[in-house]
Design a protein around this nucleic acid. Structure first.
Lengths: 172, 172
DNA sequence: TGGATACTTGACTTTTTTGTAAGGATTGAG
DNA sequence: CTCAATCCTTACAAAAAAGTCAAGTATCCA
């Protein structure tokens, strides 16, 4: 389980935009310099973000890129999605099917439920974290508070008297 | 953010071992056949698991592989670690440092706290899930129960009582 | 003892991901 | 109008990961 370079660097680029006043543009060269990346690479990353509609570009002299929406309206999930796709459990059994057409565990895959669990959790978390949270550093102090309560809420350890009649989709 | 092929397939291989009575061996060919993988690949994956001490091998005729410990004593985390390393936030800023020696955000990286958050959570979850849970399918019904309670426990949302209302940033 | 079975390991090939290059298109300034 | 600044897009090269191969070594059992 890993974070790809494209996700990490792309996120840094859009964070760079999130840190300037909304509406102001920043050009590729500035971002590349500040983030320690090549201009060619930054261009490519911004191309991906732009294509996803998260940023806008202004061409010509004095041009550059800026966020398409205020930072508090862009979620981490949208950014990661634009940069290479989010982990979704449904695709895993298709993606990793060995040399068969479909997953050998089709219909009774033990792993699917675990990846669902993980992927759904991440989707919720990433949906709620916005670029503004990140820019303001608000994520940091929240980590410990999560852990102090998590001991009672992480499911697998304890019981399972649960009804499954819930839908857990969370869209913006 | 993605799960690597090695993790997915390696996990399936060790799950195969977890499903037979403890102490019994299964040979590579059987696993490869059931899981739809090449024997060469299964050999490599089991080599990794073996090296990490999670499995034992028995050579010679009627030999094969078996778990080194009962399935309830082997965590998902141990398996993933053996198969390619778990996401740890501390290494991310080193791994992705651009063309500089160290991360350009050294000392004030907004992303670090998020990846810490994610990585720490996953570590806890993966530590608690054992191969026995997986083999018994216990993970499945627990997913909804997580979501029913998670709404109160996911930190980033509830922590800020909408203080962004006053900032009337001009619309573009 | 010797052949059959099966694990062991490093090198090799293929595929995917990263990152670079290059030329094109659009805009604004003078 | 012209030109330079800047974005846009595709193609390609380099690096890393995935997966295969093959030549081992160890063990069992007749």
């Amino acid at each position: 389980m890993k974070i790809t370079a494209q996700e990490e660097y792309g996120l840094r680029c859009i964070m760079h935009l999130a840190r300037v006043p909304f509406g102001e543009t920043v050009n590729v060269r500035q971002i590349a310099e500040c983030e320690g990346l090549s201009t060619a690479y930054v261009e490519k990353l911004l191309y991906l973000l732009n294509r996803a509609g998260l940023t806008e570009s202004v061409r010509g002299a004095q041009g550059g890129y800026r966020l398409a929406y205020p930072a508090e309206q862009i979620s981490l999930r949208q950014v990661l999605e634009a940069l290479g796709g989010v982990l979704t459990a449904d695709n895993l059994c298709n993606q990793f099917s060995g040399d068969r057409e479909i997953c050998v565990h089709h219909g009774g895959c033990e792993l699917h439920s675990v990846w669902s669990f993980v992927a759904d959790y991440l989707a919720v978390v990433f949906n709620r974290i916005t670029l503004k949270h990140l820019a303001d550093g608000e994520a940091r102090p929240l980590v410990p508070s999560f852990f102090s309560r998590s001991e009672q809420t992480i499911p697998l350890a304890g019981h399972q008297p649960v009804q499954t009649a819930q839908t857990n989709s969370e869209e913006r």
